[in-house]
Amino acid sequence: MIEFKDVSFWFSEDETLIEKKDEVLSHIDLTIPKGEFVVLLGRNGSGKSTLAKHCNGLLLPKKGVVLVDGLSTIQTEQLWDIRQKVGLVFQNPDNQIIATTVEEDVAFGPENLGLHQNEIRIRLDEALTIVGMNDYRKKEPHLLSGGQKQRVAIAGVLAMHPEYLVLDEATSMLDPEGRSEIMSLISELKDSITIFHITHYIEEAVDADRVLVMDQGQIVAQGTPATIFNMREKIYNWGLELPLVTETAWLLQLQFPHLYPSLPLRAEELVTALCSSV
């Protein structure tokens, strides 16, 4: 379980907050239980990446505490354990790959854990199989597509056997093919590992167990995807947008108010509900 208890953060070195507007995170209370697939939405600058970096102590709260399975990120002697539990994948695939071949890159983490050669081999095979990059293990990372690089980055994290996988806008620089590669990988992983996916693409929240929305450093809404997708006006105020399917259904509802009890999230739902009610 990852817990945020009244967490506030600002970037200046000052211990006390000078101006309210400098607060990047403002009194965040949040619990992510083990096994959940949580999607965090929010416009650029809403504080979502800052929140992500608090999950494994890359940033430390100025106020409040962040606990990972009861370990506080402020206690430096616990950071090593925390970072093994919580793996982070970032936005730009080019900034995360360090080695000259795919398998060296994925093995980098486990090697640093001081694991036995056989164990490293096992973890490498396992991680590359999960992300579907086994055929590319001898390839040079710079020859891969964006989606493939991001899958290698995820494999590098999975090889550390983390309990929580935090994806900090890991899809935002990818083309549509790359994004759907990562989203289908997430749907395969979500039953075996806790996933905290941060994005500004609302359609990536369709399959989440819970959706959180951030704006101006605060969590302004949370609920099931259906609950969040039905808050159309607020969604635009938060700088997000509805998926095309939901937007179409909303337009239809202006004319036929009883068409949808709840706005649909998927094309199939839009069509099925339409055909059964007319």
């Binding site: 650029n44 935002s172 693409y201 609302i202 700088g239 997000l240 947008e241």
Partner: peptide
């Protein structure tokens, strides 16, 4: 529009 949030894109 690559990498922009929905508002920036719009």
């Amino acid at each position: 529009t690559a990498g922009l949030d929905p508002e920036g894109k719009r």
